[in-house]
Design a binder for these strands. Structure first.
Length: 476
RNA sequence: CGGGGUGUAGCGCAGUUGGUAGCGCGCUUGGUUCGGGACCAAGAGGCCGGGUGUUCAAGUCACCUCACUCCGACCA
């Protein structure tokens, strides 16, 4: 019954969403704080989520013809400085190495904040002919950006990601690549993480340092704030000119290739937590959950119970599910709370009463709904239930996004709704109006959605003719 | 980088007008339990974040410093 010895109790979302978030991160054993600010330990349970994401994405990268590589961790200062916009964007948040062993280095080295310059430096050496193109590379690694404030997953001074870097003979092919990879990211969020996304363009103000176009997918968290969830960039030939990378085309002309890059980070796990979690803790969609089903014997000492539970684990493993049996001597109530905290999508209980009835009890994490599953139907019923949970989580998140996206005609209307979700307005395309909106309404531009709507003819900031519909929001 | 908060056992905390450190949970061992965070018994576990000062005496007072955290400005 009611018991106050709940050391793993977490702060409620409504009371303090930020505290709730950090509680979940630590109590669900996803991360631990390290001795250095902004650097986090990803514990096995958190890393297992990342591994599932990596496996899914890496499979898509391979299907679309990309190869994995590994680049150096350090960038000589002179290399970083070759592309002007790029340095300006990243230099302020670089960590620098100035000493090797006991020797002062002749040139200081930046710990990579992103690897465009390294790829370019390498490509300069190996690209010769149009026959060498396209070059479609990816690397899984961590990067360092010296952020001022840090939070687990959402913002660390080091974070894990993949960064794809490609070179193409033509602009059209490079642009196609950029959009193709954005679409893979969008599908990863929607299909794997059960998070609906908005695909769109970043404004010039918000685009990546050195990019010609930045495409983004934006997600809405449970508290209605925005999370920039992945980006894909088209560079044109800006970097390849700066690094003097050319190839001989079919006409024996030296030509600058067109470049892209795209990245997906462990921030996605933060988004996952803030999209689906509740006051009991983490809620994981079955497709990414390290453990999809936890099997609990009830009154395990009674004849046949433990054996029956073990049999359930074996049968579910045999059909490829990630399943765990908890045969520890903790009480059932303790186990319920524990696996709810860790967001395991489905709990299967089997006890003496179930043995009599030839069934198991399944309890969904997302809505606590209880379902009796005849043991004979286990192999069909459990995967079906997991798919139901996956879909229900997506639907719930989609409903949150849809019901908290507001059209607006004036700056005042934007301001009124700014703390309550996304606001969509028309926009003239002028950066001055974007800045004005930020000052007046406290929102940043999230993206210019690919799916445009016509909400009017004029920009709410300046009254001039509008060019696009744009989405505003308060972002993490 | 500005503003606030917190540092005492693994976690959460108490510690009076300064007097030489305690509680709950967790952990270990044994036993009883088991359908919503069980119970009993016996144990282990501390450079009180660090430094300097005041004092016969500092977890406690003063100053400094470090770390973490939250809120802003900057960013995936």
């Amino acid at each position: 019954m009611a018991n106050n010895k709940q050391v793993t109790q977490i702060t409620s979302m409504d009371q303090d969403f930020a505290q709730w978030y950090t509680d979940v991160c630590t109590k669900a054993e996803l991360v631990d704080y390290s001795g250095v600010k902004g650097f986090f330990v990803m514990r096995p349970y958190g890393y297992a989520i990342w591994e599932n994401i990596m496996n899914w994405l890496d499979g898509e990268f391979k299907k679309t013809g990309h190869e994995n590589v590994s680049m150096p961790m350090f960038i000589p200062e002179s290399l970083l400085q070759k592309e002007k916009d790029h340095v300006e964007g990243f230099a302020p948040e670089c960590a620098w190495v100035t000493v090797g062993g006991s020797e002062e280095l002749p040139e200081r080295l930046c710990v990579r904040p992103t690897s465009e310059t390294l790829f370019c430096d390498h490509w300069k050496n190996i690209l010769h002919s149009w026959r060498d193109l396209p070059m479609k590379y990816n690397q899984w690694c961590s990067v360092v950006r010296w952020e001022k404030t840090t939070r687990p997953f959402l913002r660390g001074r080091e974070f894990l990601w993949q960064e794809g870097h490609t070179l193409h003979a033509t602009e059209a092919e490079a642009r196609e690549e950029t959009l193709q990879m954005l679409e893979i990211y969008a599908r990863c969020y929607e299909e794997l993480l059960a998070m609906p996304v908005i695909r769109g363009n970043k404004t010039d103000k918000e685009k990546f340092a050195g990019a010609e176009n930045t495409y983004t997918i934006e997600c809405m968290m449970h508290d209605h704030k925005a999370l920039q969830s992945a980006t894909s960039h088209y560079f044109g030939d800006g970097f390849t000119r700066a690094f003097d990378i050319t190839f001989q085309d079919r006409n024996n002309q030296a030509v600058y290739p067109h470049q892209t890059s795209w990245g997906f980070t462990t921030r996605s796990i933060g988004g996952l937590i803030m999209t689906h979690g509740d006051d009991r803790g983490l809620v994981l969609p079955p497709r990414v959950a390290p453990t999809q089903v936890v099997v609990l014997p009830i009154a395990a000492h009674k004849p046949g119970v433990t054996e029956a539970a073990e049999k359930l684990v074996e049968r579910l493993k045999a059909i490829g599910l990630r399943v765990k049996g908890d045969f520890s001597d903790n009480s059932p109530g303790w186990k319920y709370a524990e696996y709810e905290m860790k967001g395991v999508p489905l709990r299967l209980e089997i006890g003496p009463r179930d043995l009599e009835n030839g069934q198991a009890v399944a309890v969904r994490r997302d809505n606590q709904e209880k379902v009796f599953i005849p043991l004979a139907e286990l192999e069909n019923a459990v995967p079906a239930l997991l798919e139901t949970v996956q879909q229900a989580l997506f639907d719930k998140a989609k409903a949150n996004l849809d019901s908290h996206t507001w059209p607006a005609q004036t700056v005042e209307e934007v301001k009124a709704k700014a703390m309550d979700g996304f606001v969509k307005t028309m926009w003239c395309g002028d950066a001055a109006c974007e800045e004005k909106m930020k000052e007046a309404a406290g929102v940043s531009s999230r993206c210019i959605p690919f799916a445009q709507e016509n909400l009017g003819d004029t920009c709410p900031c300046c009254g001039r003719p509008a060019k696009h519909m744009i989405i505003w929001g308060v972002a993490y």
